[in-house]
Design a protein around this nucleic acid. Structure first.
Length: 199
DNA sequence: CTTGAGATGTTT
DNA sequence: AACATCTCAAGA
């Protein structure tokens, strides 16, 4: 299965966010095997990041997993109806994570399309809550290691540095000028309206 | 293509 | 009151 080792996540959050592009997420939630290729991430770099759930070492029941081991899933519920999935980074005790923002469907496309209400392939996982819904990720997976089923990050072909773009994070006011969003240039599967826009 | 509003519940 | 979002309807 060649899961990425948990040591991959025990590094600087920005490096993990960049280097996750091109790797695969394999979900066997509910029995069907669905996989996607990661094309967009965001870094949430711990206590000094004003947009982080763990800003100024804030610690609560919700973000407790951010303080745990690197490689754990941090899944949270937002806007009253959406789940979003992160992977915890850096060292245990230091709250940081990478938000999985968008991915390209690879395997189990029709299962994912059904979970997403029959949308076009480009819209199956083009946003953090869409990605979570497509893969069947809910709060039940909070704290689960991504080195083991039912949700595994498998080694793919990394996106080369010259095909990576960066920008400010989406939907974030505090720390808006920080370029902590990373994506594959030219991908039709990244979040937001961009079919004809600039990457 | 773009904009704007509503859904819906947790956190501060 | 804000929120690491999404969908739909309407307008240009």
């Amino acid at each position: 299965m060649r899961a990425l080792p948990s040591a991959f996540y025990a590094r600087q959050t920005v490096a993990v966010a960049r280097e996750l592009l091109g790797h695969l997420l394999v979900s066997t939630v509910g029995g069907a095997r669905c996989s996607v290729r990661i094309v967009e991430t965001e870094a949430y770099v711990g206590p000094r990041d004003p947009a982080s759930h763990a800003h100024r070492w804030h610690r609560s029941e919700r973000n407790e997993v951010m303080y745990g081991r690197p490689g754990l899933l941090y899944v949270y519920f937002t806007y009253g109806m959406h789940w979003c999935a992160n992977i915890v980074t850096e060292r245990e005790g230091f709250p940081a994570a990478v938000l999985l923002r968008a991915a390209e469907p690879v395997e189990g496309v029709e299962v994912m399309r059904r979970r997403r209400g029959g949308v076009r392939t480009e819209e199956i996982a083009s946003g953090p809550a869409k990605l979570a819904q497509a893969l069947g990720i809910t709060g039940a997976l909070n704290g689960h290691p991504v080195t083991r089923p039912p949700l595994v990050v498998r080694a793919g072909v990394p996106v080369s540095p010259r095909r990576r773009g960066s920008s400010g994070r989406v939907g974030v006011r505090a720390g808006a000028r920080l370029r902590l969003r990373f994506f594959e240039l030219g991908s039709r599967h990244v979040s937001g309206p961009r079919a004809s826009g600039r990457p």
